[in-house]
Every structure is written in structure tokens, then in C-alpha cells.
């Protein structure tokens, strides 16, 4: 019931209320939940999820999906850590990692945007391609990067103006993409293509370039998130990004960007990311076992998806009705 309200809220107001309720709930049940240390940790977790979800928002905005972000994170983490382990400098290692995201995004974009293959199955296939490559490269092992530079990014002490570097990176990406989406021709085009492919085409736009670019952006952002994840522990493994696609999709839906596309935006996604991270953090804090956390998060996500679909259909019907009368 609570979730329904969240989505109906006026431009994220409901979401804010949801977050506050969750905070109150968690602080009652978990003693140190509201501690400064945990709040900082929570923001760190939110940052990584937010970076992935920003890319996912753009993809869902054009009425597509990207299931491959989780495996892109893993692949990037593996590639970067393995290069670092073998003594490569941090900059080329990171560039190589991000290149993985570009390539997977390009492949997705080409297959979905140009070849017009089913976007669900295509990105599902690239998911297993990415994860498979990650497994092959690391040979199923955990890769210890042994890099002071990488460690420096993720370490708890790498703080700038009181906030962790992760938070600054996520904030920079978020603000930049917010600007791009709301202020530039590129962003406007995404809203048009997602709103109605036909209307966009009739206005003389080429839609395939939009699809390709959103998938590349999504891939790159997933790569960045993957590197940050790897830097946290200074190592990488092939399951590091597992499940992130689901968390990201749920974040975007909760944030008010529906599967139908053409509507919503990044502000909602930010709130969605805070909500999902709070839920995860809180469950951990209350002392629920990881596998039960997994189930609870899954159920929550499923409910969010169902509510999104039901709510959207009703809204569509109401709109037709209103226009006709």
C-alpha cells in the first residue's frame, strides 16, 4: 500500500515521505543506523547505485531496457584490476575498463537500435556475454589489484571536503547528466524518441542514434560504477556487479520513469537510489541474513514493477477518457 502512494506522489514528494518513514523505522529497530559513520556509508552505497541508475534512466526514458549493466560492472572491475595487478598505470587501466562499457554499450545499441532486435533478450544475451568474459579473464578467481592508486580512490579515508570521493563522483555525473537531459538538444531528443517514435520521426529525427548513444552512456556509467566497486576492496571478481541491473531498474521505476518511456527524469532516480540503498543498508543493519535480504529486496522490486504497470495502464485509460470528453 505504501508503495502505491509513493508513486502517486506529486513529483517525488511521496518518495521523500517514504524515505523519511523508512529512516524512522530503521532508526527505531537498529541502534547505530543514524550514526554519522553509517550515514556516510549509506551515501557511498547510494553513489554507486545512482551512477548505474542514471544510465538506466536514459535507457528506460527511450522505452528500452539494459539488463547488461551488472555484468558490465563485473567485466570492468576484472579488466581494471587485472591490468593494475600486472603493473599497468592507473590511468590506462581505468580507460581500458571504461572501454569495456563502451563496447558492450555499442553492441547493445547496434543490435537494438539498428538491427531492431528485441531489447530484452539482446541485453540479456550481452549480460551473459559480459559475465562470461569476466569469468574467463579472471579464471573464476578473485583478482587482487594490489594498487595503491585504486585503493586510494575507494579507501574510507579518501575524503574531500568532508565527503567521500565516491559521493563527489556520483554528484558530478548526476549534475552533468541532469544538465544534458534537461538543457541540451540531446536530452530533448531522448524525451521525444521515448514519448513517441512516430512523432520523433515525423519531426525529422533519426531515432537509431538515440538508442545507440543511451546504451553507450549506460555502459560507460556501469563501468565507472564497476571501477568504484573494485576500488572499495582493492580487488575484483566476476560476481561483483550481480543483481545491479535489477536494483537499477527498480530505482528508476520508483523514481517515476516508467517502462513506457518519454517521461520522468533524474531527480526521481536520485530519490529512488536513496530509498533502495536505505532499504538494503537498513536490512543489513537490523541483522537480516544476506539471503533473506535478497528475497525481501526481490519482493519489493517485484511489487514496484507491478505497481508501475498497473498504475500506468490506469493512467493511460484516464488520459484517453479525459481527452475524448
Amino acid at each position: 500500500m505504501k508503495k502505491t502512494k509513493l508513486l502517486k506522489g506529486k513529483e517525488g514528494l511521496g518518495l521523500l515521505v517514504g524515505i523519511i518513514v523508512l529512516f524512522i523505522f530503521m532508526s527505531i529497530f537498529a541502534d547505530n543506523f543514524l550514526s554519522l559513520y553509517n550515514m556516510h556509508n549509506l551515501l557511498k552505497d547510494t553513489s554507486i547505485l545512482l551512477i548505474v541508475a542514471v544510465g538506466m534512466t536514459l535507457v528506460i526514458l527511450v522505452a528500452r531496457i539494459d539488463m547488461s549493466v551488472g555484468s558490465t560492472m563485473s567485466l570492468t572491475a576484472i579488466v581494471t584490476t587485472i591490468l593494475l595487478r600486472d603493473g599497468t598505470h592507473i590511468v590506462p587501466a581505468i580507460i581500458a575498463g571504461i572501454l569495456c562499457g563502451v563496447l558492450i554499450g555499442l553492441l547493445n545499441g547496434y543490435l537494438v537500435g539498428v538491427q531492431k532486435l528485441n531489447h530484452w533478450v539482446t541485453t540479456f544475451a550481452t549480460l551473459s556475454l559480459g559475465k562470461g568474459l569476466a569469468l574467463v579473464i579472471c579464471d573464476g578467481q578473485i583478482i587482487n589489484a594490489n594498487s595503491d592508486h585504486l585503493k586510494a580512490i575507494g579507501h574510507n579515508s579518501s575524503v574531500f571536503l568532508g565527503l567521500h570521493v565516491f559521493i563527489w563522483i556520483a554528484a558530478a555525473i548526476f549534475v552533468f547528466m541532469l544538465y544534458v537531459l534537461n538543457k541540451t538538444k540531446f536530452g530533448y531528443k531522448l524525451y521525444s524518441v521515448g514519448g513517441s517514435e512516430q512523432t520523433a520521426t515525423l519531426a525529422g529525427m533519426k531515432t537509431s542514434t538515440s538508442y545507440i548513444s543511451v546504451y553507450i552512456i549506460s555502459g560507460v556509467l556501469a563501468s565507472i560504477a564497476g571501477i568504484l566497486l573494485a576500488s572499495k576492496a582493492n580487488n575484483g571478481n566476476a560476481t561483483i556487479g550481480d543483481g545491479y541491473e535489477f536494483n537499477a531498474i527498480a530505482t528508476v521505476l520508483i523514481g517515476g520513469t516508467p517502462f513506457a518511456g518519454g517521461r520522468g527524469g533524474l531527480t526521481g532516480t536520485l530519490l529512488g537510489a536513496v530509498l533502495i540503498s536505505t532499504l538494503k543498508n537498513g536490512l543489513r543493519f537490523i541483522g537480516i541474513t544476506p539471503s533473506l535480504q535478497f528475497v525481501i529486496i526481490g519482493v519489493v522490486i517485484l511489487i514496484v514493477i507491478i505497481v508501475d504497470v498497473v498504475f500506468n495502464e490506469r493512467r493511460k485509460l484516464e488520459e484517453i477518457r479525459r481527452v475524448e470528453q
Partner: peptide, 26 residues
Amino acid sequence: NLLPYRTIAQNIFLGREPVKNKILRT
């Protein structure tokens, strides 16, 4: 051929939006 979730101005200038910064295409 209108996008219901965009503003009137955004619909009027769909695909022909005036640009103030050539590089970023703002």
C-alpha cells in the same frame, strides 16, 4: 503528434529547438 508529457513550447519547437551554445548544444 504531440508529446503529452512535454511542455507546449517543447512541442512547438520539437526537433528545431533554438540553441544558445553551439558546442554543448544547449
